[in-house]
Design a protein around this nucleic acid. Structure first.
Length: 125
RNA sequence: GAACUAAGUUGGAUGGUCGCGCAUUGUCACGCCGAAAGGUAGCAGUGUGAGGAAAGUCCGUGCUUCACAGGGCAGGAUAGCUGAUAACGUCAGCCAGAGGCGACUCUCGGGAAAGUGCAACAGAAAAUUACCGCCCUUGGCUUAUAGCUAAUGGUAAGGAUGAAAACGCGAGGUAAGAGCUCACGAUAUUCUAUGGUAACAUAGAGUAGGUGUAAACCCUAUCUGAAGCAACACCGUGUAUGGAAAUUUUAUUUGCCCGAUAAGGCUUUUGCCGUUUCCAUGGGUGGCACGCAUUAUUGCGGAGCCUUGUGGUGACACAAGGCAAAGAUAGAUGACCGUCGAAUACAGAACACGGCUUAUAGAUUUAGUUCACUU
RNA sequence: CUGGGUAUAGCGCAGUUGGUAGCGCGCUACCUUGGGGUGGUAGAGGCCGUGGGUUCAAAUCCCGCUACUCAGA
């Protein structure tokens, strides 16, 4: 499943301010209902709702290659959880990497994201 | 065998499952655009996909735009010599100096006699030195061929200091002294000769004693228009995006509540869509992934890469053959499991190239030095 | 991509025509007070961000690096 990235800064600040939050060991997950879900659905070839995903990896975590690695791991973790469960669509999801991410493995991240999604009622039963 | 010196190479490989960017081929019932043909998103196949430093951004160059009659000043950069190079503050060889037993390494290496400034503390004095001392002359006093004292002058031998004190040492010389003179030696500089393209080296002759600092100002010689891919070109328009406010709280019915109707709409109901007003910000494509021409094969071009050969001490040059496939745009190379295993370092392209600087685990090649032992 | 700035005591800052580092607050001890505060006296605390160089001598001059920070397109 390909994700559409959040590229506008105001969407990030909105999500931080108004979204629901779950703090895990490795990641912090913010979720907000996407206001443009319908519009994106119309643009989508299969007319499906899509989650828009943003990754926040600050400069504190390390240099460029470390940040790239963290981003890849976050994407992989997200991909695995979405494959495992049926997730709700039409949301803005922002994943913020914490310091522990640098040494973490994909399974840890996936586990974290899974717990977060369960806590935030993002998973269809 | 140990300890070193110099120059290099490499920077995991491989199998499976899942996944990503780009190029290209095919497909496209359903989605979007279109009258249609078709295109596109998507899907499938094939190919390909990050370094030696991609980093720092310290130099140079291409490229682009702006400016521009010519010359000079100011500002900036460079600084032994010769060469290499598109160019450079880079590189090579050499010279000089410094370090090391040695292989070898290091050096922002012009000018202090063009001028100005500075040299704390200490010391008489830090630069055309006279405080003490030494000495001549004159005067005064006394115990009178001498001593004490005062003044004019001479002097740089001796004098606590300091990073640095007017070349060192000996002899002559003198009232006392002094490169004042001489011998030996050191330094700087000029001329000549020899060698070298040159820096410079060696030898001879002459001259000098004017400390240090130019990574203080400065002087000399050479070079120098400015800005940068967020450059720039094209397309596009008051459209697109964001923020704030208003539009949901009134009217009718009723004493009040509930309910109903109307005044935009929706229902994921502290909201969203739409509309109005005010404010703010600009989008897309190319540049850009060898280029140009060509329907294509292919041809031409280029500071491109590799291999071989030739020339050169070397940097490098020339010739032949071959190869040229990262191109993202919130930013693609990953994750997991096996096997070999030392694979554990530093680290992620953002217009491109040549250098420099800095970071770097492990593996490995070549040449050489010193020491020890054995023969 | 380009161009600046800063780093000095626990904190905030001075000090750069080179000469051996201070100020305020804070800290410690003592005095003052019945006690505390205020006030007074004395004191401690510095590899001047880091690695080199120039110089007799470097916080200061020159070069490299690190961290933080500002501005412009």
């Amino acid at each position: 499943m390909k994700h559409i990235a959040i590229s506008e800064n105001h969407l990030y600040s909105k999500t931080y301010a108004k979204g629901q939050k779950f703090v895990g060991k490795n990641v912090i997950v913010y979720v907000l209902r996407d206001l443009k879900a319908k519009k994106l659905m119309n643009a989508h070839p299969q007319r499906e709702y899509v989650n828009r995903v943003g990754l926040t990896v600050s400069k504190k975590l390390g240099k460029a290659h470390i940040r790239n690695r963290v981003k890849r791991i976050l994407r992989e973790g997200l991909r695995q959880t979405e494959k495992k469960y049926e997730t709700k669509k039409g949301n803005l999801i922002v994943l913020v990497a914490r310091q522990a991410c640098v040494l973490a493995k994909t399974q840890d991240i996936a586990c974290d994201i899974e717990r977060a999604f369960k806590a935030l009622n993002l998973i269809n039963v």
